[in-house]
Design a protein around this nucleic acid. Structure first.
Length: 601
RNA sequence: GGGGACGUGGCGCAAUUGGUUAGCGCACCGGACUGUCGAUCCGGAAGUUGCGGGUUCGAACCCCGUCGUCCUCGCCA
């Protein structure tokens, strides 16, 4: 018989009454009445009340033992008196009367109190992650993640995808984010890089004829953190398919994500097919390429109405190439003056010179810029967003990209501050038709705007005949509630189109050959048209868990500065290790720990 | 690298905005208690207010610097 338990802490019910059982777990809470002691014994599965009578030899030990100690109890399952049944607990109708007690591991006082619901500083939670993970909310989030990953695997396999592993030690990629580098011992001065994504490998698997690839793929990028972006590493449901169009990729992703979201959340989920919003339309209407469609505000372009108007601040800027974006909001005229003032301050903090607005009040239009506007101009503004009594229209004026971004930020802030965000729903959309190229704001040169390996829409003909900035790529994002869940593309599998695409961005054929020889070589021996996408697993689980922060769905996350406070990573290494790797630390920051670190080579 | 918020016993917070011995809840320690389920009651210990400097008769509070955490911008093909 197992020496630790016959049942888990969530197994026992009235039907077990009379049986002698053995339970092991952590002491979650104690209620000591002197003449009787109740212990809530907790394990992964649940909790069970243990009753200890003072006649027992271990009564004194248990009265003093610290919470979170691990113990094993043996005794009979007993029905509780009706008045003492705890309907809140699945095991609340019974209790186990302790006849024997074995201490497995006594705990010191824990640095966080696990039975409470108080907020705890992240630093403490991260340092004692193994304790924080015992708490119900985080424990459940990690379990949810486990079930989601299992579901993704099952679903992908059912759809005919094969799971692969790809190298973790690979080579640095010339484009994209900063790499994590691993020095080579055997090759002085050379480095491996951790993959930012298995992008090239999955394309090579398509060239190898595997047809449908997927992987729950670890990705490593040395970029700074955000609330929805853990530093260092994250996971993607990486997939790639041969002989597909964009529509085929969309169908798979809609199937997988819809089934995942409906399986693991009670919230309403947009049923496929999800709406497709061209990139330019998203930037215009929502001021973002990851719009939160739960916010019922649509931005308008009103440049033409302000062009030549009496409001010189805008009219002058428009003459110099600026645009005006209007953000109409319903029924907020009664907001206090401070609301508007704060919003103006917010706009200034975004880099705007101010934030103009007009208030539709009865049959009048009021507000700081009203006096500059002609009656017909006000009527045109009212018409473009069907302004009615009580509505307010905010205006930003700047260069097109900046104006869109500011308007989008203000749209989001209004949505949050005014509680306009639709609750209880996952709103999905595709952002499609990303531009292939954009102007580098510093050099004013044509540069790739996203993935240089995407197939340009129209292929070679588009590259040869269209103005580069008008060319769109077969590139797409899935967005859910304002969170970018994934990016993907139909790939460019034709070397001659690739050379041309890179040429427009200023790369010679030799550049491309030098940087991407592996992929190019593969494409010279028969490559299938292919495409794919890679939904972010952490973000999917974050949405499903309703978590505000991605660390809430990662068992062992790093902090914002990419440190693991529990393990102490990153850490200094010994001089011996550095020598083996042919590494010498530059500048002031010498490795701290080993005594021999100071000895110069 | 820039901006913002925060930093007070183990944990979460407060301190009438510069004024008595820095207070409260939880956890902890001691005592009481035979039916609780965030037990209750009584008592106790625990603080260089992140650190360093400055202003002041007097600083948790104001100023300068510094460190740390989080949010954000840059960055994330």
């Amino acid at each position: 018989m197992n020496p630790y338990r016959t049942h888990t802490c969530n197994d026992l019910r009235p039907a077990h009454a009379g049986q002698t059982v053995k339970l092991s777990g952590w002491i979650f809470r104690k209620r000591d009445h002197g003449g009787i002691l109740f212990i809530d014994l907790r394990d992964h599965y649940g909790q069970t009340q243990i009753v200890v009578h003072p006649s027992r030899s271990f009564f004194e030990l248990l009265a003093r033992v610290k919470l979170e100690s691990v113990l094993t109890f043996t005794g009979p399952v007993t029905m509780r008196e009706p008045s003492t049944i705890n309907a809140e607990l699945p095991t609340g109708a019974i209790e186990v009367v302790a006849d024997e007690c074995v201490e497995q591991s006594l705990a010191e006082q824990t640095p966080l109190y696990l039975a409470g619901d108080e907020d705890i500083a992240e630093e403490v939670r991260l340092k004692y992650r193994f304790l924080d993970l015992r708490r119900a909310s985080l424990h459940q989030n990690i379990l949810l993640r486990s079930r989601v990953v299992a579901h993704l695997r099952q679903k992908m396999t059912a759809l005919g995808f094969n799971e692969f592993q790809t190298p973790i030690l690979t080579c640095s990629s010339p484009e994209g984010a900063r790499d994590y580098l691993v020095p080579s011992r055997v090759h002085p001065g050379k480095f491996y890089a951790l993959p930012q994504a298995p992008q090239l490998f999955k394309q090579l698997l398509m060239v190898a004829g595997f047809d449908r690839y997927f992987q729950i793929a670890p990705c490593f990028r040395d970029e700074d953190a955000r609330a929805d972006r853990s530093p260092g590493e994250f996971y993607q449901l990486d997939m790639e398919m041969s002989f597909v169009t964009q529509d085929d990729v969309f169908a798979v992703v809609e199937d997988v994500l819809y089934s995942t979201f409906t399986s693991f959340s009670k919230l309403a989920v947009d049923a496929p097919a999800w709406q497709r919003i061209p990139y330019h339309e998203a930037m215009l209407k929502y001021g973002s390429d990851k719009p939160d469609l739960r916010i019922p505000i649509e931005i308008r372009d009103v440049t033409d109405i302000f062009r030549g108007s009496g409001f010189n601040a805008f009219a002058g800027a428009i003459a110099a190439g600026a645009v005006v974006r209007a953000i109409p909001v319903r029924a907020i005229k009664s907001q206090p003056r401070s609301f508007f003032d704060k919003l103006v301050e917010h706009a200034k903090s975004l880099g705007s010179k101010g934030l103009a607005y007009l208030i539709w009040d009865g049959d009048q239009v009021k507000g700081p810029i009203q006096k500059f506007m002609k009656k017909e101009e006000l009527e045109a503004l009212a018409a473009c967003a069907e302004m009615r009594d009580g509505d307010v229209m905010f205006f930003v004026c700047d260069a097109p990209g900046k104006a869109a971004k500011m308007a989008g930020d203000i749209r989001g802030k209004l949505g949050r501050d005014l509680n306009l965000i639709e609750q209880g729903v996952f709103r999905f959309c595709w952002i499609v038709d990303f531009p292939m190229y954009e102007l580098d704001p510093e050099t004013n040169a044509v540069a790739f705007s996203h993935n240089p390996f995407s197939m340009p829409q129209g292929g070679m003909e588009a590259l040869e005949k269209m103005p580069p900035l008008d060319i769109r790529a077969f590139q797409y994002d899935v967005v859910c509630n304002g969170v970018e869940l994934s990016s993907g593309a139909i790939r460019n599998h034709r070397p001659e189109i690739m050379f041309k695409a890179f040429a427009l961005a200023g790369y010679t054929q030799e550049d491309v050959e030098a940087k991407f020889s592996g992929l190019l070589n593969a494409f010279r021996y028969g490559a299938p048209p292919h495409g794919g996408i890679a939904p972010g697993v952490d973000r999917i689980v974050m949405l499903l868990a309703g978590a505000e922060n991605i660390r809430e769905v990662i068992a062992f996350p790093m902090n914002q500065k990419a440190q693991d406070l529990m393990m102490g990573a990153p850490s200094p290494v010994s001089e011996k290790q550095l020598r083996e790797l042919h590494i010498q630390i530059r500048g002031q920051s010498k490795p701290a720990a080993p005594a021999d670190a100071a000895r110069a080579p």
